[in-house]
Design a protein around this nucleic acid. Sequence first.
RNA 1: GGGGAGUUACGCUAACCUGGCAGACUGCCAGCCUUGGGCGCUGGUAAUAAGGGUUCAAAUCCCUUACUCCCCA
Length: 479
Amino acid sequence: MEDNDKGITAKKSEDISEWYVQAVLKSGMADYGPVQGTIVFMPYSYSIWEIVQEAFNRMIKGTGHSNAYFPMFIPENLLEKEAEHFEGFSPEVFWITKAGSRDLSERIAVRPTSETIIYYFMQKWVRSWKDLPLLLNQWCSVARAEIKATKPFLRTSEFLWQEGHTAHSTKEEAEKEASMILGFYKQIIEEYFAIPIIMGKKSESEKFAGAVYTYTLESMMPDGKAVQSGTSHYLGTNFSKPLGITFTDRDGNEKHIHTTSWGISTRLIGALIMEHGDDKGLVLPPRLAPIQVVIVPIYKAEEEMHKVLDFSNEVKSQLANAGIRVKLDDRDDRSPGYKFNDWELKGVPIRLEIGPRELQSKTLVISRRDTGKKSKAEYSSLTGTINDTLKLIQEGMFKSANERLKSMTFEVSSYDDFKRYIGKGFVKANWCGSESCEAKIKEDTTATNRAIPLDEHKKGKCVVCGKETDIIAYFAKSY
RNA sequence: GGGGAGUUACGCUAACCUGGCAGACUGCCAGCCUUGGGCGCUGGUAAUAAGGGUUCAAAUCCCUUACUCCCCA
């Protein structure tokens, strides 16, 4: 049959942009909103986000953090209190100038990030060293006006994220916090999303507006563009000084708090789709898949149907009882072939087909979405086999993503090679650390500094100016 | 920031150049059929992005707006 409207018609290797849009829309992950750059996070993608929330909440609550929710409206005077921060964000702020028909005397910003509004409250709440540390997180959406080049999940005017905001009495404690969170993010992105990442600090020009320094986690998409997948900032006293947030320490002296902020967003879902998907659609890693196993029943006569469905339900409850997210596709108006294609489009890791043959043999065929390979499993030990297979899929997906990352990372020592490989992945090179060399790279290639690895140093000459340095940095074009 | 292409039923698309009954596939609804890789049959249902202009007549020509995609900075 000719390609019809249902499946993805673009090839990932030939036209990844078109492929991506089709994968997002046809799998039921998202739909476009009526305002530019907005999307609906449909149940299928929102379920993934809920799994992320669950995992990350466990991590931060286990280390003393609490969730809260702050207003999305920020008065202009508050937003502009920290100059660098305001300058960095104001070009993309959505401003509210009217309430009903009444003109507002002061513009209200829809939060592009919540540092300023949360610090407004920290100022009220923090008095003594006993009030510290204050470890807050909120799950919310933020709005940043993206005028051009929007892409579902990866670049939208409104997106969902978590933003952590913490206050500490000392620099050391705040820095430890920022780096601990970085570790949590690495775990989430590598162990759940099965996306390998490069970790490091941002350069001065790429760091968060208002930060002392920014830790970043960068992933590489198959088209050679990097995605900033998470950031954790040490803000020092950059915000507490202009906002006047002080506490009385044990020694009786009044001191400014040291703060951190950190976030991961639904952008990760975009990276997930791009990283693992194939020409048939999504390929979801088991730990994030809303449905880990789908059972497709196959039958002819009505009498057979009941037997098949009974057995299918039995299999389903057995798996569900073992904590596996399982769905029985008992739609009576769809053929098995339709269902196979449908669940492959949605990226369900494992498919079980249950028909008269399986009923007879009590042996099930496990069909893997990631490799397309099939293997047999005895019904008596099914749960164990499924759990093992899910684990294998998760590991296999990370492994192949990691191999791709390696094959797309180019270590160069000349500017000619730098320009040759930029756009094809990460280009790793010595860099003197100067803003002028960084700016030249941006001007010549449109690529930016993505990360300066924390513990990696190598003597060499700056790829741009030739100056001796031991700084190694990753550069790439990015989303 | 600059340029280009586009928007017809949930979706994919025909008619557009050359103005004159909006056609198919898919979907959806009803009935029959019953399923091992997008089952089949019959009947029905559903669309010209929004606004303005030209014209006897606009999906078609012109303008504005919105949204989408692509290329360049």
